[in-house]
C-alpha cells in the first residue's frame, strides 16, 4: 500500500459517499487506553462532520473506565443519525496497538482499521496468563485486508509532543471520509486549545500525508 491520501484511487471514499447518499450512516469507532485523548479525537471528527453539514452523534463511557482501562468512543454521521451506539464500525481507529483487536467483532466486513504502532502493556500480561500481540498484523489480517499501521509515536516525538498522537491518527483517518479538508481544519481550530493549535495542525498534516 502506497500513500493513502491519493484520492484518485481511494475506493473507500467513494463507497462512503454513496452510502451516505442512500441515507446510510458512517460509523467510526475509536479505541485506546485511558488518557490517550479519545475524547479530543471524537470531538474533532464530530465537529468536522457538523461543519460539513451532516447530522452527527458521539458516544463514550466515562467514570470507572478511565482508570487506566480500555476506552472506547465512537462517532456516527450521515443525513440523520438515530442511535449514538455503533452496531457495526465502518472504520476502527486504535490509539494503541492491542486495542485494535478489542472491538474487532464490531468491524464491518472489509472495514478499515487504522492502528497506532504504540504499545501500552496491560497488567494482565505481567502474570503470564496473556501475551501481548506485538505482531498485530498477523492477527488483524484474519479480519480485514484494509489495515494501516501508523507510527504516530515516533512522529509525535519528532514534532515535540507525544500527546499529538491522536491528531496524527485523525489526519490519517481524514483520507477515508467524505469530509472536506477545510472542515477538519476548522474543527481542530475550534476544539484544540489555542496554545497548542499550531502543533496539532502540523500533526494533522503529517497524519494526512502518512505513507503505509
Amino acid at each position: 500500500m502506497d500513500s493513502i491520501n491519493n484520492n484518485a484511487d481511494n475506493k473507500y471514499l467513494s463507497a462512503y459517499e454513496n452510502k451516505i447518499k442512500n441515507g446510510g450512516i458512517i460509523s467510526v469507532l475509536f479505541s485506546g487506553v485511558g488518557g490517550q485523548g479519545i475524547l479530543l479525537a471524537t470531538s474533532i471528527m464530530a465537529h468536522a462532520c457538523l461543519y460539513d453539514g451532516y447530522d452527527v452523534k458521539v458516544t463514550e463511557v466515562h467514570g470507572m473506565a478511565q482508570r487506566g482501562g480500555s476506552v472506547v468512543g465512537s462517532v456516527r454521521f450521515g443525513k440523520q443519525v438515530f442511535s449514538p451506539i455503533i452496531s457495526r464500525a465502518d472504520i476502527i481507529v486504535s490509539l494503541e496497538k492491542l486495542e485494535s483487536l478489542r472491538y474487532i467483532d464490531k468491524l464491518e466486513n472489509n472495514g478499515i482499521i487504522i492502528i497506532n504502532d504504540y504499545e501500552v502493556l496491560p497488567i494482565s500480561v505481567f502474570g503470564g496468563d496473556y501475551t501481548y500481540p506485538h505482531e498485530i498484523s498477523e492477527k488483524i489480517k484474519n479480519f480485514t485486508s484494509s489495515y494501516f499501521i501508523v507510527k504516530a509515536f515516533e512522529t509525535a516525538q519528532q514534532i515535540g509532543s507525544t500527546k499529538t498522537m491522536n491528531v496524527i491518527l485523525i489526519g490519517a483517518l481524514s483520507n477515508f471520509l467524505p469530509v472536506k479538508a477545510k472542515s477538519w481544519i476548522r474543527s481542530i481550530e475550534k476544539v484544540v486549545p489555542k496554545k497548542i493549535l499550531d502543533l496539532n495542525l502540523k500533526a494533522f498534516e503529517i497524519g494526512k500525508n502518512f505513507k503505509n
Binding site: G68, R102, S124, P133, N142
Partner: peptide
C-alpha cells in the same frame, strides 16, 4: 482461528 484470536486478547480492566 478468529475465536482463538478474540479469546487471547489480554484484558485491560481499570486499575
Amino acid at each position: 482461528e478468529i475465536k482463538k484470536i478474540i479469546s487471547e486478547i489480554p484484558p485491560r480492566p481499570p486499575v
